[in-house]
Amino acid sequence: MKKSILQSTIATAAGVLLLTGCATPTTYVDPSGSRMVANVNQINIQDFANAADTMVNSLIDNLINQGKLQSGVPSEPALLAISRITNNTSRQFDTNLLVKKIRVALLRTGRVQTTTTMNLGGPEDPLAADQQKAKEFFEDKKHTRLPDYTLSGKIIQDRTPAGDINQSAFVFQLSLSSNAGIAVWEEEKTIVKQGSAAAIGF
């Protein structure tokens, strides 16, 4: 009886050890590298970075580098507010995965700043909004600086199955509107992926 229990315990332990040995170990991967996991039916983190990179390149090339970006306050960077970014894909995700990257990159250009107190559906930073109101009250300021530009957009998915192969096209559309309501910059980036299952790399 004792021998049988001992044998089964050893067998279980050996099994556990073997299973642990065969499992793929968790590794850290450079998010800007080429070894990210990609799949067909969803936007992966590297796709957001790729789309944001295209958008920022286009904004710098067509607006900032051409000296066309105008600020309401001379000698200060232009003020940007984030408007509606619609996710029209089959998956749920936070659009900040795209927008935050663009905001960071634009801030680093030194030519654009983003307001956190004037946003669609309420301030992004409520405390900053309260502080702004208090400052305006105590300093007897009558006008808050309004954004010079607003950023809006849409992310659309188009799926095309063909036999064993699936194709997903993700279309990123962004527009920058002036405070006169005119789209002064627009860009579209399409990322197309084909495959049947999750795979390493692009």
Binding site: P31, S34, V104, R108
Partner: peptide, 29 residues
């Protein structure tokens, strides 16, 4: 180095004997 969250490896493919251009803007002056 100037690090940005938009920096990523970008996939590209070329057809046989195709010539193409990759363009990029500096993130800051």
């Amino acid at each position: 180095i100037i690090n940005l969250p938009t920096m990523t490896a970008i996939p590209r493919s070329l057809e046989g004997k195709e010539t193409a251009s990759i363009t990029a803007m500096a993130p800051t002056d």
